[in-house]
Nucleic acid binder design. Structure first.
Lengths: 134, 134
DNA sequence: ATAATAATAGTAACGATTATTGATAAGGAG
DNA sequence: CTCCTTATCAATAATCGTTACTATTATTAT
């Protein structure tokens, strides 16, 4: 019998991409992840990185962080948390905000809708860039 | 002598675009706004709409709502509030969440950074689409 | 090992947004 | 008002992030 749901194959590429995300302490873009994986698989394609990241995102293994006007970042999923985007250097850092409580609160505010997900992103200048920027 | 700061000109185009945003009860995209303004200025360019919206956004007259994977929406700035994006029909609605409190709380969480702005976007199914979607 | 087929590399295509360019018109000086 | 400067315009090309396509490769079941 075959799996009726989803045929999955573990490939070197997928394993390497997942490992790259899991071992990242920053919040790399798909392009950066592609560069890092190329240390192991030199000719891996950016399209593959995007496709695998999309799959990992759907199965909940990684989290995609959409940044307005900038490429998405990817994060190993721990607990739900918000993100801070520095508009000067482009770095993304974690911010401890109770996202679940936010969703629960908003649930009351929009009657009838089903909230599946929330994205909280702060924008501004990080501590480093605040000092530099005249 | 010339103005050293910022030369601003009020044009029919800018006035019409601003009026279109101010009189919108929904959250139109740049393309939709362009269509609406074309009722008044038939040959206005989408590029102009984008440029003017960018300027209005910088001067704080309108607010850009970035929706991951979909074109940005524009809103007249009232008080800070979050948005709900229906992944089925693409509609964007307001959600009453105290964004200022969120920023104040996050301010403590990320030491040293200057938070200028926050974007809170919920994703899911709106009341209408929840019923339709089998 | 072999066959079936999911996943890949490479590249083309796509949609949203931005930049470029020559033409137009706003606004101040005379 | 007329002229001049130059910000803004319409049109279009270019850019960027991301996705789709296709021939080929590699994984898994047998």
């Amino acid at each position: 019998m075959q799996a009726a749901t989803a045929p999955k194959r573990m490939t070197r590429q997928k394993a390497a991409i997942q490992a790259a995300v899991m071992s990242s302490c920053d919040h790399p873009t798909a392009a950066v992840l592609c560069d890092r994986v190329r240390a192991v698989i030199p000719n891996i394609s950016l399209g593959t990185v995007y496709r695998v990241l999309g799959a990992l995102s759907e199965e909940g293994a990684v989290r995609e962080i959409s940044v307005p006007g900038a490429p998405s970042r990817y994060d190993k999923t721990t607990c739900a948390h918000a993100h801070f985007y520095c508009s000067a250097c482009g770095s993304v850092t974690d911010v401890d905000v109770d996202e679940d409580a936010l969703i629960r609160h908003a649930d009351c505010a929009c009657g009838g809708a089903v909230i599946e997900d929330a994205e909280v992103i702060f924008r501004g200048l990080c501590a480093k860039c605040k000092g530099v920027n005249q």
